[in-house]
Amino acid sequence: MRHLFCALPCEAEPLIQHFKLSELKEHELFRLYQSQDKTISLAITGIGKLNAAAAVTYHHACLQTSSTDIWLNIGVAGHANLAIGEACLINKITDDRHTTTWYPQILFKTDCTSAALITHDAPATEYQAALFDMEASGFYQMALRLGTAELIHCLKIVSDNQEHPVEKINADVVKKLIAKHKTTIEQVLEALRPLAEELNSIKAVPDHYQSLIEQYHFTQSERLHLARLLRQWTVRFPKEDIIQSLRDIKNGKELNKKIHTKLAESDFVIHD
């Protein structure tokens, strides 16, 4: 799943259209949107880091996000001298009020400029050699609690700078700036996909685990042990179905013991 977060409706609108998202009317606290195949969603957070953090939490609660999902905060931001319309992936987020800093991990190739960003509590009036916004620190801080750092990013499009100050910005300009970078946004999401897939494969529940814990009683530690044993079995004997060779099992403890014994009695070869 990919989750997009925009502060303003005008930032979200081009993305809602591009990804063909429909509003989930049953959720009223924040406006949430989702694609028909449920692989991509969007939340309009409103302005400010508290709103951004709250929207991330709400989104998580409503859509039951997973730690292997991709999270992307998209919006416009000001910078002293970067060109209007330049797309920037954020490599450092500083919360201006709390002077806390986060460093999003960009592990993929990108055409975007990477830049630092400062999140302010109120609209900033002085341009600096860093992007500034009012949401990223709230978004990132909360998404980090729910997701995996390498899959959480902020993409900002430069909307104003010293030569073209913020007064000239309106909703139409913002829509055009975001719309112009639909492909950039897709590229970032696409670059993150293999990382998310790899994480998914690591965290996947082993074959038969679910059916076995429904069939037999296991304590919590026995469940963990079962998951480990099933993984070991799959790694060592990918073509042999363990279930076929287990008979007359009375309970979970006995099942674990039988798998353990089978593994222990088998030859161990580390390479093919």
Partner: peptide, 24 residues
């Protein structure tokens, strides 16, 4: 890309990171 930081632990010791992904 050069990114200024105060102490390396701000990056290196943070939770929610994945060693396997970063190794790429």
């Amino acid at each position: 890309s050069k990114v200024a930081c105060e102490r390396y632990g701000e990056i290196f010791n943070r939770k929610s990171q994945n060693f396997r992904l970063q190794k790429k």
